[in-house]
């Protein structure tokens, strides 16, 4: 009665490349489920966040319930269930960065972007997040934009960083056009 009937395999929501990567990933480990966390992260990289469809697709690929997937995903702070900006700016304010101006840096980003912690700019280009130590303590203060590190920063470098991503986005847009 309660367990849902296994449904027909729906088409995947992922790109052919990612889909192929996932096919390989579930084979890679002694146990299929070991692929779960990387899959979620890679899916998020492609889709932007863990939408219901992502959760369902990943659950099906691994053969676990969606509840299991949510339960695991919600544990990890890099995984999110809501979209972020194209460039997610993660400012470390943990002790070493704090001692060297992490909060001043964070405030500068807030001002420049006009958003708060976990906020997204109206154009969807940037989101801002205050994060825990990112492993760059000796080069503090440090941030990550998506997966890129920027270290030994000071607030005055904030506009330049933002500009570089703006032009990157623009270049990409033109390349697509």
């Amino acid at each position: 009665m309660s367990p849902k009937n296994m449904k027909e395999e729906p088409l995947t929501i992922f790109s052919p490349q990612l889909s192929a990567r996932f096919d390989a990933l579930v084979q890679k480990y002694p146990v299929k489920r070991s692929a779960l966390i990387p899959m979620l992260l890679y899916a998020q990289d492609e889709v932007g966040y863990l939408s219901d469809a992502v959760v369902a697709d990943v659950a099906r690929r691994i053969g676990i319930t969606e509840l299991d997937v949510r339960s695991v995903a919600s544990y990890y702070s890099m995984l999110r269930f809501k979209p972020a900006g194209k460039y997610n700016i993660q400012v470390c304010t943990n002790i070493c960065c704090m001692l060297r101006g992490g909060y001043e840096l964070f405030d500068r980003f807030r001002e420049e972007l006009g958003v708060e912690h976990k906020g997204i700019t109206p154009d969807g280009l940037f989101s801002l997040e205050e994060v825990e130590c990112i492993g760059a303590c000796s080069w503090a203060p440090a941030i990550q934009v998506n997966y890129d590190f920027h270290d030994e920063l000071d607030p005055d470098r904030v506009p330049g960083i933002l500009d570089s991503y703006r032009s990157q986005a623009k270049a990409e847009g033109e390349a697509h056009a």
Binding site: S2, P3, D68, S71
Partner: peptide, 27 residues
């Protein structure tokens, strides 16, 4: 053997969660 409940989030934000988001599909 229904496995309809799980934990979501971590730390003090942890909650018990039902299998259908905010609803329970179970026995």
């Amino acid at each position: 053997d229904v496995w309809a409940l799980g934990i979501e989030n971590r730390g003090s934000r942890s909650v018990i969660a039902p299998n259908q988001g905010n609803r329970l599909d179970c026995e």
